[in-house]
Nucleic acid binder design. Sequence first.
DNA 1: TAGCATCACGTAAGCGCTTACGAGTAAGCG
DNA 2: CGCTTACTCGTAAGCGCTTACGTGATGCTA
Lengths: 366, 366
Amino acid sequence: MRAPTIYDLAERAGVSIATVSRALNAKSGLSSATRARVLAAVEELGYVPNGTARGLSYGATETVGMVVATRTTNVAQASEEHESLLYVDAVIRGAERSAQRTGYALLLVSIRPRSGWEAAKKMVGRTDGLVIVDRAVSDDAMTWLAERHPVVALAWDSPKGSEIVVRIDNAHGTRLLVEHLVREHGFTELGIVRGPASSFDATVRWRTAEETAAALGARIVGTWTGDFSASSGERIGRSIASGPGRPPRALLCMNDQMAVGVLNVFAQDGISVPGDVAVTGFDDIVVSRYLSPPLTTVRQPAEELGATAVTCLFELSNGTGLASREIVLPTELVVRSSCGCNGETRARAWTAAPDWARVATLDGVG
Amino acid sequence: MRAPTIYDLAERAGVSIATVSRALNAKSGLSSATRARVLAAVEELGYVPNGTARGLSYGATETVGMVVATRTTNVAQASEEHESLLYVDAVIRGAERSAQRTGYALLLVSIRPRSGWEAAKKMVGRTDGLVIVDRAVSDDAMTWLAERHPVVALAWDSPKGSEIVVRIDNAHGTRLLVEHLVREHGFTELGIVRGPASSFDATVRWRTAEETAAALGARIVGTWTGDFSASSGERIGRSIASGPGRPPRALLCMNDQMAVGVLNVFAQDGISVPGDVAVTGFDDIVVSRYLSPPLTTVRQPAEELGATAVTCLFELSNGTGLASREIVLPTELVVRSSCGCNGETRARAWTAAPDWARVATLDGVG
DNA sequence: TAGCATCACGTAAGCGCTTACGAGTAAGCG
DNA sequence: CGCTTACTCGTAAGCGCTTACGTGATGCTA
């Protein structure tokens, strides 16, 4: 049972395939009678346009590609597999939402560690543009891709080649957080739980944290390195809890998932948060506000990040021309209880990011 | 700067386009010298095959579609938007992984509530098969789609039309949980936090919970209905905490996210878990083991669910023929501390699901 | 050396659609 | 009433690729 084509529709409606195409695409130059005949045939035959043929002829796939690094949760099995990064899921949601608004679909591929970037390459011939998340491909690969396709890099360093970069203002959020801990709470001995060195976001965060602490006269009394997973946070938390030295008065985790792990261990070991140690995160994932104590963190607009990336892609291919090759989304400090405060307050921190306002408005945010 | 085509390659390598195609697709009947010339041209020109043209000619898109209902987290803004269902993200990951293994990509669209299913319809012409998650479209739409395209329904009732159903064994997991609470802990007064009535999974779960409780001589002293979000769990938890009646001895939440909300409120209000009230969930999302207390729950293999769905799709289009039109994946009881137990133990519960073993093995699980 | 496979490659058709161009008809004008 | 203009619709080319079929060259057997 072959799927019906416009030829079938044409025969059924007694018109030519050109007329069918015009009716389907709501073009002008058609009598309403013929249009109705064609649309009736569509219903009768249950016709669905072949997107492949349409794309080939039309010259656009109406698809945006999203390339992410593989993140797998499989607690039951191989533990060397990485835990999923919850915020990436949010980015994907945002991108899909933004694409959908223009009738586009999201083509998702993940790149396994050490698996090469063939999958990303393949996407060039299947999409109208690519969003590459968080170092899913190497610098060279990024340049290669951006040279021949519209590419937006998410959570990337400043653009080196033709790619557009969309990222969040890690530094500003981190600064607000450290200032809060040092100035409001008077904590002078801080600990830092870093993220993986491969992550651009993570690196900026801990660097800024250390700089800001130094500038404010606080000391970094310990640093640990995790991989952004809750289980790595758990591991680190345990080593702090059972270590010889005095724990830091406040522990800054470079993402929420690691903070989740830390909080869990501290609760088990009878370390009071925030009484003994204040703990903070970064990201503001869905569950953070429901932890006990509710997590003080820096909110990064993950969905907006994905949505903005796709919007940029559209502008890029429309030739509208972006005002800037680098777009920075704002972060905000979300103060809950794990730092020692009482409830939730938000210190919205708008960065000086002129481009952002424009792009975000397109997406219906601003 | 037009993207290079096989015509450019042919000219460069001094061969015909047919030869180029053969070289690219590793077909036989080519001297290794010509093949090398073509591949050299590929490198020089930075050629990437046009997937659209390939698909049209080849007759397959090498794409599987995934249709989900919109789930948006936007705590900052419109609160009527639903919180993301974390387990859906896991399903997406699993599907992508399974698709990737065969060189397929995942085309993702979400359907907004009340937005119609046009987006899903469109996917028929753009994919080789469709996975529809958790009632993203109506029964009629499902039938229409399944009549003209390979379709796998996830977390759906038994198949009514041509679709294949892949779901988890909700009943078995729920039964294990209730038995644990009643038999091991001796709880006789249970409360149930239901999920949305539209969800097939949720309905089976609370029905089974109530039946099992009755069969074991425990009483259901209260039921509440949430929407699977943590915030609805929070709302329900608050009404329990501040309500007049005595709270149930154990509170069964029909998913983890609602349990997260409940746990949070109880911690705030000084209700001890599991001392005063035992709390359980369903799903075993990433963070559940890190909550305090760690959540006793029923693990559903969300990634496997997605992976299995895609695998089924492949079998369906290969014409290999599925042994059954309904595949049930096992659930397992994960006992942590929120029920009153001490640590983590797992009661693996293999359901009598002969098909599953076969399908899952294909995916490298069994 | 005639005859026949076999191999390596080119030719051309066709996948289902969009769209430039042209043809035919009806309407508008002096 | 003859002309132009506008409208409606058909014809055909082409998007970039795969592949059935054909052709010439080479190797083998009798």
